[in-house]
Design a protein around this nucleic acid. Structure first.
Length: 105
DNA sequence: CCATTGACGAAGA
DNA sequence: TTCTTCGCCAATG
C-alpha cells in the first residue's frame, strides 16, 4: 500500500462499527487504491487478532471465508449475526449493513 | 525475472 | 439475472 504496509488497511477495518460490514473494494478505495481489492483480501488473511476481519466481505455480501471453510457453517456469518448483521438468502443484507465513513459521522 | 494463485470486481454474453 | 472472462494487486515457487 501507499504506506508500504498493511497497517493502513487494518486501521480502516478497525473503524468499521459492529453490526456493519464493508467490501474489500471499499476498503481499498478508502486507501486511494480502488484496484487493490484483491490485495486487501491478502492483508485480511494476515491481519492481527485485533482486526475485525469478519466485517469485511466481498461486494456480493457473501463471506468468502465461508467458502473456504465449506464444511462448517461460516464462522464469519455467525460472528456478524452476533453483532446484529442480518443475512438474506445466504448473503449479508448490504442495504442495511453496508458501512461507509460518512455513515459514522 | 516469469508463471501461478487467491478472503476481488466490473463488464460481457 | 446468472455464468464466464478479463483485469488488478501482492505473494509464492
Amino acid at each position: 500500500m501507499t504506506a508500504g504496509s498493511w497497517d493502513e488497511v487494518w486501521e480502516v477495518v478497525r473503524e468499521i462499527p459492529a453490526g456493519k460490514v464493508m467490501n474489500y473494494g471499499g476498503v481499498a478505495r478508502l486507501l486511494s487504491r480502488p484496484l487493490s481489492a484483491r490485495a486487501v483480501g491478502w492483508a485480511m488473511a494476515e491481519c492481527p487478532s485485533d482486526v475485525p476481519w469478519h466485517r469485511v466481505v466481498n461486494v456480493k455480501g457473501v463471506c468468502s471465508t465461508d467458502a473456504v471453510d465449506g464444511a462448517e457453517i461460516g464462522r464469519q456469518r455467525r460472528r456478524l449475526e452476533a453483532e446484529g448483521v442480518t443475512f438474506v438468502n445466504g448473503h449479508v443484507d448490504m442495504r442495511r449493513h453496508l458501512w461507509s465513513p460518512e455513515d459514522d459521522v
